[in-house]
Amino acid sequence: MSDVILNNICKTYNKGIVLAVDDVSFSVGKGELFGLIGPDGAGKTSIFRILTTLLLADSGSASVNGYDVVNDYKKIRQHVGYMPGKFSLYQDLTVEENLKFFATVFNTTIEANYELIKEIYIQIEPFKKRRAGKLSGGMKQKLALCCALIHRPTVLFLDEPTTGVDTVSRKEFWDMLKRLKQEGITILVSTPYMDEATLCERIALMQDGKIMSIDTPKNITKQYAEILYAIKASNMSHLLSDLRLNKLIRSCNAFGEYHHITFNDDLKNSKSELLNYLKSKNYISIEIKQVAPTIEDCFIKLMNK
């Protein structure tokens, strides 16, 4: 059974000039942790706003918890939690007042669902008398999550919850999501960070309003057809330009410490030919090894299709 279903959703802005969501269909199973992965402008926020009944699609249909986003919008609003990418709580209310406000709006109390938010809320509780506008970024994020959870939603929509957040806080946030998943809450989360994709059960890779690929992270990386190598040598920036000009190379992208390359012809002599070429160019400490493709490798390949 699916908690979220989209059928051929299209959305344009500026009288049809900007195509934000281009014929998108997918579904999210009950209790699933599903990720929309893509850069700014991929259409992620538009999809969130359509599903949370804040925006009408131009065409196509969508439902949440079995309710239609257009006809049953009031029902959906009662049941879902939404954390927008932009901080949207009341800046001039305190932490506690914000939480109380959202509980009251949803006809519940903080006490009734305290267990669900407890682990997150205790981290910001020492500041409960502080105005939300005066909180640090990390604390704002935690408060926003508490407010989105206070009515125990069936589906939680998180639009780029970790953007601009450092790696340590990002790890903590994903740990929180895993715990919420255990509570049976369906989670749809978006992120521009490709490394977070592997933390989702299933993902959709998005670019320019379209879904380029949709599957489990494992299956997506399995579909990467070529053999991928990581290479490094003495001068990485020159190596990058030399590799790009080399006819043996099909693709070459900087990947942190290494460059990731694929060959036009995966036969063994491609590798030794390349090594000879690099040695002739006076590169030293050359290291080349086969590596497993990451989601980011797959994303780049799909973008260049």
Binding site: P39, G164, M303
Partner: peptide, 20 residues
């Protein structure tokens, strides 16, 4: 200051070409 936040992986690399 965080010049590549939210930028797609291909453009992010092109941005670093400009930096180099």
């Amino acid at each position: 200051d965080e010049p590549t936040g939210g930028v797609d992986p291909v453009t992010r690399r092109q941005f670093w070409d400009l930096i180099y």
